[in-house]
Amino acid sequence: MLNQKIKYSMDPLIQVRDLVKVYHLGEVEVQALLGISLSIERGEFVAIMGASGSGKSTFMNILGFLDRPTRGQYLLDGIEGEHLSRDELAEIRNEKIGFVFQGFNLLNRTSAIENVQLPLIYAQLPSKKRKEMAEKALSAVGLKERSHHHPAQLSGGEQQRVAIARALVNQPSILLADEPTGNLDSKTSGEIMAIFKRLNQEMGITIVMITHEQDIAAYGKRKILFKDGKVVEDHNSAL
């Protein structure tokens, strides 16, 4: 169903034009995004920076089809979310997007491998296939031998690696990471970033990552700086 909607497969993976997001908090109108236009190619590793309230999280939510823009256009892989239903957006998230959150967001009472299988359950894959793919994803983050541990039995870095495995398991077009090292010490942060770098370089996975730490942002090939709902800097070191 989704394949039919891909019109320009050679176009950039992400195309954003004049994106505006306005929140209404009671009487107050909050302008979170004031006309963002940018595009991200396949295989890029983008770090989005900015102070809190700069609109970077709102932007990330829209990229992840968790939120809809007030105005403007957003295309992921040629798909526009504007007229899609809640369930159709869920399907796109399931097939094309992998999320990594600051707080890991694992299900507590389920083992690592079951956490990783979660997107595959909603993709309606049979359990044998799910297990295979989850094991592969856990190997990719170096956690194969801990696959039956529960989150409480894992360190913060290990939990985040499980979360990365979950984000990868469906072979998404893009991996969206919101402050992935925010809850980790610097050594573990380095390990996580090493995984990101390897996934990007060896497997060609496109990564968009929010961070407010310069040294973490340095792992990205491209840095975008948000301020007051606008892009104020876009620096691509790969070019």
Partner: peptide, 16 residues
């Protein structure tokens, strides 16, 4: 609530 959020984020539909 958070668990439901995670599930919806990774692709659970309303009916799931």
């Amino acid at each position: 609530t958070r668990e439901i959020g995670i599930r919806i984020a990774v692709g659970a539909k309303g009916k799931d």
